[in-house]
Amino acid sequence: MLSIKNIVKQYAQHRALDGVSLEVEKGSIFGLLGPNGAGKTSLIRIINQITAPDQGEVYFNGEKLNPDHISKIGYLPEERGLYKKMTIGEQALYLAQLKGLSRSEAIKRIKYWFEKMDMQTWWDKKVEDLSKGMQQKVQFVATVLHEPELIILDEPFSGFDPVNAEIVTQEILELNRKGTTIIFSTHRMESVEQLCDSIALINRSHKILDGKVKDIKNSYRDNTFHLNYSGAFPAEKAGLFSIVKPADSENVTVKIAAGKTPNDLLSYLLPSIQILELKEQVPSINDIFIQKVTQLS
């Protein structure tokens, strides 16, 4: 769907992107993560052809990125807004026409979406009469109106209350089910785990991690388990396990040595204690994010 090959973007004194390469699969939800100022927005602007890279290339469906692709991409920028004096309907119409929709087609689709999102009465309202969350809804609709193949959402949930955030999440998932590829740039790691199939982590202009969420999490598993038990917990046994977190009377976190399995541990422990719960500690994306970013700085 989208291949980003060795992109370099240089501003006067600052290299925003340094040899970044990414692959976004068709029909996936792709999370673009990174701390503030890492270069995410620069990369997104290049995909949207707002700026051009100094080196490297971007391919959209195998074709080199060109102006024809603009109408196939929907972009919800982090810094977003609407014209203060225009009515909501006119703005949506204007933005849809700029993406190449005919007037009549645009009106039809706006009506469909306004109904779907429970905004029918908003057509003649002005932006100043809407709350921030309501404005975000309008912007979201304007982003998807032209039925793009690729939707890029930069911090889509900022400014939404939990109810509307859920509505938008469901819309995103539905669009994805219909085959739309989605790129997600956000700091909210829980939504990344919930939504994304793949992620890329960008830090200080470099890509430092990418892949499927499942694979990344697997690769960060370190055989750590959490035990809930009753009885007297035995001492560490070299070659089988070590205690990561000292136990209270009921809980302990242990790390199983390389080459051993949880079953080996269980058979060792069973004679001495009652085991109530055994659970593997899989690192969250949030943990991986923090670990990766702080490790490099």
Binding site: I50, P77, E79, R80, G81, L82, Y83, K84, L98
Partner: peptide, 11 residues
Amino acid sequence: SRIVEVVISSV
């Protein structure tokens, strides 16, 4: 009003 980035992703 921050609409400019939306518009220049189209033109």
